[in-house]
Simulated assay, not measured.
Amino acid sequence: MEASTATPTPTRPPHPPAASPSPSPSSLRLWRSAALRNVRNQWSHLYAAKEQWVAAAADGRSPASELVNAHITRRDLPATDLGVLKDMPGILDKASSKLERREEQYRDMFLSCYKNMVRALCRLVKASHSMRCFSKVSPNGSVAQFSERQDDLNDSGDGGGAPVFKWFSILEFESLAQELVEIFVSDLKLKRLLVLELVSITFKEGEEHQTSLDWGDELYDGESNELQSFGLQSGETCPLSENWCGDILGSQRPGNHPSHEVLQVYLTAWLANVNIKMSRVDGIFELVEEEMNIKFS
């Protein structure tokens, strides 16, 4: 059951970086003006990335379902009563080849949706790490400039912990953004395991190449680098709990193919976004909208 829609007050990270020394009133005004624009922009990027994720997950429903349906039909062909077509030469081989091509088509569409989800999470992570606004010395020293890069080790880019809009400091905005990242990383772990299983069913039996995918395998070129950007790819071990991995992977390995019922469970798990508490996600954006006095949509 989804958690309550009540939105808790954001808390600072357990070990926040040391705050900058309190700036002078004039410096603080200049910093806040730059920080307002930057934080607003980064939260707009966070919202767009969240919407991209939701759309990609929804787009993956149809090809995943069609992939499973084509696979089940092809797998059950030998036992299917073909009626008056049973004596047609090569009918089973032709039907099987056509279904196999459909599986490959829907597999590629499904992987494309998954790839869009990974890209959305990369955008989410990048925005969450770009909240700070660092002072930058201008060439002539007469104009205050700001940057996302820390040039002065004594400047933490947080305005000495001052509020950016009304109440929230940079650290509190970062804490909320990190919570969003953790929510979507948690669901990507499960989504990726489901992708591995559903893509594996398209492999042919009896061929020399592998007949299933492991967690350490890339699903598309460059995937490992993108996963590493938010700390997900850590070798060849599935990062989910042993129960998750044992229940799902054990359903078909070694040498066993998932039953119709198991495949339906996979689809249900994908459709449900079971590791995302959307009420909390929506609550975070509502909290930030109220603080900034804007609407993202």
Rank of each mutant, 00 (worst) to 15 (best):
W53T: 04
P14G: 08
G160N: 02
M117K: 01
A272N: 13
L287N: 06
V195T: 00
R101I: 02
A127C: 09
L213N: 05
D158Q: 02
R119I: 14
L85D: 15
T7E: 11
V262T: 02
A35K: 02
F184L: 11
F165W: 04
I201S: 03
S33A: 13
S24K: 00
C238D: 00
C133S: 02
L188R: 06
I284V: 14
M1R: 13
R149A: 12
P239I: 08
S251T: 01
A144F: 01
D151Q: 10
R280N: 05
R75H: 08
L213W: 00
P14K: 07
E66T: 14
K295C: 11
N256C: 06
V199P: 00
L85C: 06
P163R: 05
N41S: 14
C238I: 04
R74P: 07
R280P: 00
R149D: 12
S24I: 08
A19L: 14
E207W: 11
G83S: 10
T7R: 04
P239C: 09
E2S: 14
H260A: 10
I201D: 09
M88K: 15
G246Y: 03
N225V: 15
D87I: 09
K204I: 10
K166I: 07
Q228C: 10
R123K: 13
A49L: 03
M131Q: 03
K126P: 01
S65C: 14
P239R: 04
R102V: 13
S297H: 15
S200G: 13
V164K: 00
Q145V: 11
K50D: 14
R253V: 07
M88Q: 15
C238R: 00
A95L: 09
S259P: 06
K115F: 08
Q233P: 01
Q210R: 15
L92I: 10
R119T: 06
I183L: 01
T80H: 12
R37I: 08
V84N: 15
E286A: 11
M88L: 15
L271D: 08
Q145E: 15
S26G: 03
A64E: 04
L92D: 09
G83V: 01
R149L: 01
E103L: 07
E242S: 14
K126G: 13
T11G: 14
L36H: 11
S156Q: 06
D217C: 05
G250E: 03
A58E: 13
V195S: 03
L263E: 01
A95F: 09
H15D: 10
R29F: 12
C133M: 10
R132S: 04
R40C: 10
P25C: 14
A177T: 05
D187W: 05
W31I: 00
I276T: 10
S186I: 07
G216N: 03
R253P: 02
I294H: 12
Y266E: 04
D158T: 01
D217L: 04
D155S: 01
T11M: 08
P254I: 09
W244I: 09
L99G: 12
G60E: 05
Y220D: 06
I72D: 02
M278S: 12
L194C: 06
S279P: 08
K191N: 11
S169Y: 04
S4Q: 00
T211S: 01
F230T: 07
V265H: 05
Q264S: 13
T5C: 11
Y47T: 11
G157L: 05
V39N: 04
R132E: 02
E236K: 15
I276E: 06
